[in-house]
């Protein structure tokens, strides 16, 4: 792929670190639409990778491949340097890969606690341990400075920002090693955005690899270490954050970077 050659990984000190997750030549086609046309990407521990690109550039598809929601048609995924073949989100979760989906993937008819523990309910014997889940949920939300008045309220009764906060709390609270966030701040209020950015910096410090997809360019410069730019299903550029600026990134996104 010629597009892959265009990418210039500014490998500095980070190159010595074994990537937690390594994607090689990922292809994904939906019908006649080539969503991904050979993408290589390394994700390193303790690093935040910003994934940017125009709408339909393949950011979400790529992130869903990482999260196991989509299985790539071609290409290889390595986890800790070893080939990994996960074919569904459950297997990805077992590898500690967590994702905040753009559509949040919440169940509106279930209460806040239930959504936070969706798919890994705490149990006492054969029964759900509501008391312990409530206490844990309280702790999870407090750690992220998320304020939700009633944890037993159904999610359908909450605001868009509160729902987004729940989706983030769900992904961030179960010791992820790779945390993918697809537009996590689009519906958040000022204070909540700050909390999310702080959260990203905090989990980075713990060695978690974060992949952040966002349209808010100013956020990238506050948390990201490296930026990958997607264009029409390929990765066209990769920059260390200190080597780039807003204007260059914008040019790369709209396709003016190829000189």
């Amino acid at each position: 792929m010629s597009a892959a050659a265009l990418a210039q990984p500014h490998d500095s000190a980070a190159a010595d670190v074994v990537p937690i997750l390594s994607l090689h030549d990922i292809h994904k086609t939906f019908g006649s639409h080539q969503a991904l046309r050979g993408v290589d990407l390394d994700i390193r521990p303790g690093e935040c990778l910003g994934l940017i690109g125009d709408n339909a550039a393949g950011k979400s598809t790529l992130s869903k491949v990482i999260a196991g929601t989509y299985v790539p048609d071609e290409g290889a995924i390595k986890v800790d340097g070893r080939p990994a073949h996960y074919t569904n989100p459950l297997e990805a979760r077992e590898l500690n890969i967590e994702m905040v989906y753009q559509d949040l993937a919440l169940c509106n008819h279930i209460d806040v606690v239930g959504n936070l523990f969706l798919g890994r309910e705490l149990k006492r014997g054969p029964f759900l341990d509501q008391k312990r889940m409530l206490a844990e949920a309280d702790r999870m939300l407090a750690a992220l400075e998320i304020r939700i008045p009633r944890l037993t309220a159904k999610v359908e009764n909450l605001s868009g920002g509160q729902r987004q906060a729940i989706a983030i709390a769900r992904a961030a609270s179960f010791q992820p090693r790779v945390l993918i966030m697809d537009e996590p701040t689009s519906a958040l209020a000022v204070a909540e955005v700050e909390a999310v950015l702080e959260l990203i910096n905090r989990v980075k410090a713990k060695g978690v690899a974060v992949v952040l997809i966002t349209h808010r360019m100013q956020d990238l410069f506050r948390v990201c270490d490296r930026i990958a730019v997607m264009y029409e299903g390929t990765k066209v550029a990769e920059r260390m954050i200190e080597d780039t600026n807003l204007q260059e990134l914008v040019d790369l996104v709209v396709g003016k970077g190829g000189h």
């Binding site: 919440l106 279930i110 969706l118 798919g119």
Partner: peptide
């Protein structure tokens, strides 16, 4: 019971959280 409700509420979400 939780799984039944989840599938009815949002089947894709249920799948994504590993149910």
């Amino acid at each position: 019971g939780r799984q039944v409700i989840s599938v009815g509420s949002n089947m894709e979400a249920a799948r994504r959280v590993g149910m």
